[in-house]
Design a protein around this nucleic acid. Structure first.
Lengths: 156, 156
DNA sequence: TATTGTTATACTCTATAACTATA
DNA sequence: TATAGTTATAGAGTATAACAATA
């Protein structure tokens, strides 16, 4: 049996960190990311990839620069993500009709299946993570997170 | 002038992603991290390092395993972080009196200065990010984030 | 000139496995 | 046997700079 100490198994005092919203957002985000990864194990889906699928599903024919603007991902980093999705047969990349620099992205049939079945799992995982909240609290959380997102200086 | 398109400069439709708390937490967390980085430029402080300083400040003599448990950082990854802080003269690492396997961590004088001056900048940056919220809304945000953090399966 | 996509590159964060010294 | 710290390593996210092709 270990000797009891101030920093033992019990909760560790975070100091002022506990008063910082940046810490709690980072931590809560990490908890969700960990559970997302657990729930999606075996599918190859990651949070970012699902985000790309969602934007393509909502905007068929969109180019990857615009997807990146929607997700705050830089052009250079979008290349590998889209390549992954194309290589795994979830996304179709065709020459854009109106702009010969760009590619039009759409979901393949298998991309749509991945998106829909993934969404079901994600919705269950989110219901579980927010099971201690009322519908009003969930709405409030979204509203307050939006206020912080709106502070993004990198956004136009 | 560019041709107006659905995916143009205006807000891009995120699809169902916009209904997922995981996305909004990730995004809000990213906005705060970006602003933190901007505000702390030149100091060498990063979010994780400041977290370590805060826990050591609140628990002088704590060992690095316990710091890691507080921040959900694995032992293996704590090594480099503590090395960075020791090498830059912010943290003192001494043999623990009661356990010859462990090290007792404390802030150096310069570590305390970094912690206090950093905290001032961070508090200003957080006030700015939450300037659109009432005190009640800020308290609510913390309370709701705590509910999600409590869902962490990796916690004892 | 600005934008789309690309390559190359680097840093950070996170994760696992295996090892040592000590409890 | 369990824990504290370490090393090695790999995957992922994110950042910048520079380039070709096209608008």
């Amino acid at each position: 049996m270990a000797t009891a100490r101030a920093d033992d198994d019990a909760t560790i005092d975070l100091g002022v960190l506990d008063e910082l919203v940046g810490y709690h957002l980072r931590r809560a985000s990490g908890v969700i990311a960990g559970d997302f990864h657990r729930v999606m194990a075996g599918t190859g889906m990651r949070q970012v990839l699902f985000g790309v699928l969602s934007i393509i599903a909502a905007n068929p024919g969109i180019n990857q620069g615009a997807v990146g603007r929607g997700l705050a991902i830089r052009r250079a980093n979008m290349v590998g993500l889209v390549n992954e999705l194309v290589d795994s047969g979830l996304v179709r990349r065709e020459a854009a009709a109106d702009d010969r620099r760009a590619f039009a992205l759409t979901l393949t049939a298998s991309g749509e299946v991945m998106f829909e079945t993934g969404l079901e799992r994600i919705r269950a995982h989110e219901r579980n993570l927010m099971s201690d909240m009322t519908a009003a609290e969930r709405a409030t959380l979204f509203r307050l997170l939006d206020k912080i997102e709106a502070k993004d200086v990198t956004r136009g």
